[in-house]
Simulated assay, not measured.
Amino acid sequence: MAGHSKWANIKHRKGAQDKKRGKVFMQLAKEIYVAAKQGGGDPEMNAHLRKAIDKAKANNVPNDNIDRAVAKATGSLEGVNYEELTYEGYGPAGVAILVETLTDNKNRTVGEVRTAFNKNGGNLGESGSVAFMFDRKGYLVIDREEYPDVDEEELMLEAVEAGADEMETNEDSFEIYTDPQSFQEVREALEASDYNFATAEVTFFPQTRTHLEGADAEKMVKLINALEDLEDVQEVYHNLEADDEIMEQL
Results as ranks from 00 to 15, higher is better:
residue 151 D to G: 08
residue 171 E to D: 14
residue 150 V to W: 03
residue 73 A to M: 13
residue 174 F to I: 05
residue 160 V to S: 01
residue 153 E to S: 13
residue 75 G to Y: 10
residue 116 A to V: 00
residue 134 F to E: 02
residue 129 S to Y: 01
residue 68 R to G: 09
residue 85 L to E: 12
residue 141 V to G: 01
residue 68 R to T: 11
residue 77 L to K: 15
residue 157 L to S: 09
residue 134 F to I: 01
residue 168 E to H: 12
residue 175 E to S: 06
residue 105 N to F: 11
residue 116 A to E: 00
residue 121 G to W: 02
residue 138 G to C: 03
residue 132 F to N: 14
residue 113 V to S: 04
residue 129 S to R: 01
residue 70 V to W: 04
residue 151 D to A: 14
residue 126 E to K: 14
residue 82 Y to E: 06
residue 124 L to S: 04
residue 98 L to K: 04
residue 106 K to P: 10
residue 137 K to I: 04
residue 163 G to E: 00
residue 130 V to N: 02
residue 124 L to P: 02
residue 159 A to E: 01
residue 170 N to S: 11
residue 68 R to S: 15
residue 81 N to R: 10
residue 144 R to H: 08
residue 165 D to H: 12
residue 89 G to K: 02
residue 89 G to P: 05
residue 159 A to N: 03
residue 169 T to L: 11
residue 141 V to E: 01
residue 169 T to C: 11
residue 133 M to L: 15
residue 127 S to Q: 14
residue 149 D to A: 11
residue 134 F to A: 02
residue 119 K to I: 03
residue 130 V to F: 03
residue 101 T to G: 13
residue 133 M to G: 12
residue 112 E to L: 10
residue 136 R to W: 07
residue 84 E to V: 09
residue 160 V to T: 02
residue 140 L to Y: 02
residue 82 Y to R: 06
residue 79 G to S: 08
residue 79 G to I: 03
residue 125 G to L: 06
residue 128 G to M: 03
residue 179 D to P: 06
residue 131 A to R: 07
residue 121 G to N: 03
residue 135 D to L: 12
residue 138 G to I: 00
residue 174 F to N: 06
residue 167 M to F: 10
residue 156 M to F: 08
residue 68 R to Y: 12
residue 115 T to G: 13
residue 80 V to Q: 09
residue 96 A to V: 05
residue 159 A to W: 01
residue 159 A to H: 02
residue 174 F to R: 05
residue 138 G to N: 00
residue 121 G to D: 02
residue 109 T to S: 15
residue 125 G to N: 07
residue 110 V to N: 12
residue 149 D to T: 11
residue 121 G to V: 02
residue 71 A to P: 09
residue 92 P to M: 04
residue 80 V to R: 13
residue 171 E to I: 06
residue 131 A to H: 07
residue 177 Y to L: 08
residue 132 F to V: 06
residue 115 T to I: 05
residue 113 V to L: 08
residue 170 N to Y: 11
residue 68 R to M: 10
residue 102 L to D: 04
residue 84 E to T: 10
residue 86 T to W: 14
residue 85 L to K: 12
residue 95 V to R: 03
residue 76 S to Y: 14
residue 112 E to N: 13
residue 121 G to P: 05
residue 107 N to H: 10
residue 69 A to S: 07
residue 69 A to W: 01
residue 158 E to S: 15
residue 108 R to A: 10
residue 82 Y to L: 15
